[in-house]
Write a protein that binds this DNA or RNA. Structure first.
Ligand SMILES: [Zn+2]
Ligand SMILES: [Zn+2]
Ligand SMILES: [Zn+2]
Ligand SMILES: [Zn+2]
Lengths: 132, 132
DNA sequence: ACGCTTGTTGAGAACGGTTGTCAAAGATCG
DNA sequence: CGATCTTTGACAACCGTTCTCAACAAGCGT
């Protein structure tokens, strides 16, 4: 029942910290393998899932449906501005949006409200690289 | 090059209109087959894709990653409040959110900004049904 | 240190939604 | 009607993710 601390789990957390931005499970797996820390892909998925359940990482879906993971600085609820091409991420909080969302939903008689608010764009670096 | 009007395409649009709320490609396919209008699944996907490209339908991703489609009343940009269990949908616009989103993103030097703002909940009917 | 117990791992199979393939069908037009 | 050229549909392929299950190893009591 208790979560055991294994080499693999530690490695996944390290990879997350090193990469800093939103990454897919496969990218993390690739990164681990590149640095010699061999970890099974299924294990990477399991570790990420566990971390997400424990709210240790944020998960969001890329436009193509792939799940992206990130260890955010703040633990409180927040949103993200993510670069579509490199994953660069800026944490954002929108008190205005939160209030708006719950008010609107309640007014329609909906319950158990959750909101998805994410911003996607191209960061300055990627824009420069693209127009080279 | 010109889009030909075929029995299948017409059928897909009819199914969309009849179901009114956000539905998956497979649900629509099932619905068509149920009413006797047999259409291949691949064709349903292609029709929906074409409609989405033409902005005739809105597409959004369910929490499990499945794509959901809907013919919305308004053609202008807007968002949705969707019931997780039955798909019931309420169209919403949030001028506040729009302004907030573009301002925040621009302030970080991001370009080509897009925002995802969707609300998920349980509608009154589904809540009642669940607590029966 | 040494087993025991029990959660964890990993290679590969399975899964589910979606897209690609390609020969047959049919919409459009002269 | 006939030629042309898009569309269709059964099926295979794809791809991210989850499942399976025997081998493995943390943690713990001794
Ligand atoms: Zn975050
Ligand atoms: Zn970038
Ligand atoms: Zn809509
Ligand atoms: Zn409902």
């Amino acid at each position: 029942m208790a979560a055991r601390m294994t080499r693999q789990r530690t490695a996944v957390v390290e990879a997350l910290d090193e990469l800093a931005d939103f990454r897919s499970a496969q990218q993390l797996h690739e990164n681990l393998r590149a640095r010699g820390e061999s970890v099974g892909l299924a294990t990477v998925y399991r570790a990420l899932q566990a971390l997400a359940d424990a709210s240790e990482v944020d998960v969001l879906r890329a436009e193509d449906g792939e799940s992206l993971y990130r260890r955010c600085a703040r633990r409180e609820h927040h949103h993200h501005l993510v670069c579509r091409s490199c994953g660069r991420t800026v944490e954002i909080d929108g008190p205005t949006v939160e209030a708006w969302a719950s008010k609107v939903a309640a007014a329609q008689g909906f319950d158990d409200i959750e909101h998805t608010v994410e911003l996607w764009g191209t960061c300055a670096d990627c824009r420069a690289a693209a127009s080279k």
